[in-house]
Simulated scan of single mutants.
Amino acid sequence: MENVRYRIGNIHDLFQLQELFIESITNVCNKDYTDAQIKKWASGSEDEKRWEEIINQQLVILAEFNQTIIGFGTLDRQNCIDLLYVSSKYLRLGIAKQIYYRLEEFALNRKAKKLISHVSITAKPFFESLGFVMISENVIKRDDVKFTNYTVEKNI
Score class of each variant (00 low, 15 high):
14 L>T: 10
52 E>T: 12
112 A>E: 02
88 S>H: 14
8 I>R: 09
18 Q>A: 06
132 F>L: 06
103 L>S: 01
85 Y>V: 06
107 A>I: 04
118 H>K: 13
115 L>E: 01
85 Y>P: 04
63 A>L: 07
17 L>R: 03
138 N>D: 11
143 D>R: 12
95 I>W: 04
109 N>F: 02
32 D>C: 00
83 L>R: 12
81 I>R: 04
47 D>S: 10
136 S>Q: 13
91 L>E: 08
1 M>Y: 10
133 V>C: 06
109 N>E: 07
117 S>M: 02
38 I>T: 09
18 Q>G: 04
99 I>D: 01
124 K>A: 11
20 L>V: 04
31 K>N: 14
133 V>S: 09
92 R>D: 12
3 N>R: 11
105 E>V: 08
148 T>A: 07
38 I>L: 15
77 R>E: 15
38 I>E: 11
155 N>A: 07
30 N>S: 13
26 T>Q: 13
66 N>I: 08
109 N>K: 07
31 K>V: 06
152 V>S: 00
111 K>S: 15
72 F>L: 05
99 I>V: 07
6 Y>N: 08
31 K>M: 06
69 I>K: 01
129 S>C: 11
11 I>M: 06
146 K>A: 13
31 K>H: 09
151 T>Y: 00
5 R>M: 12
75 L>D: 03
123 A>K: 01
18 Q>S: 08
76 D>V: 02
71 G>F: 03
52 E>V: 14
95 I>C: 05
116 I>Y: 03
107 A>V: 03
71 G>D: 02
103 L>Q: 04
5 R>W: 00
106 F>Y: 15
77 R>C: 10
92 R>C: 07
116 I>V: 14
57 Q>T: 10
50 R>D: 12
130 L>F: 01
122 T>A: 08
142 R>P: 00
47 D>H: 14
89 K>L: 12
30 N>V: 06
24 S>T: 11
89 K>E: 13
65 F>N: 09
38 I>C: 07
4 V>Y: 07
77 R>T: 14
110 R>T: 15
123 A>T: 05
25 I>M: 03
105 E>Y: 11
70 I>P: 03
119 V>L: 03
57 Q>V: 00
137 E>K: 14
98 Q>V: 06
51 W>N: 02
114 K>F: 01
131 G>S: 05
16 Q>W: 01
5 R>T: 09
94 G>H: 06
60 V>G: 03
15 F>I: 12
78 Q>C: 10
130 L>P: 05
49 K>R: 11
145 V>C: 09
85 Y>N: 05
105 E>Q: 15
137 E>H: 04
129 S>G: 08
66 N>P: 08
33 Y>G: 08
25 I>G: 05
147 F>I: 04
88 S>F: 14
95 I>N: 01
4 V>F: 06
90 Y>W: 14
62 L>P: 02
111 K>Y: 14
8 I>S: 08
30 N>R: 13
102 R>F: 08
49 K>C: 10
40 K>M: 13
79 N>V: 04
30 N>Q: 07
124 K>Y: 07
74 T>K: 02
134 M>S: 11
82 D>S: 12
60 V>R: 03
110 R>Q: 15
37 Q>M: 09
93 L>H: 06
3 N>A: 12
54 I>M: 04
134 M>F: 00
71 G>R: 01
11 I>H: 02
146 K>G: 00
113 K>D: 09
93 L>M: 15
84 L>S: 03
106 F>I: 10
131 G>F: 05
11 I>E: 02
144 D>T: 15
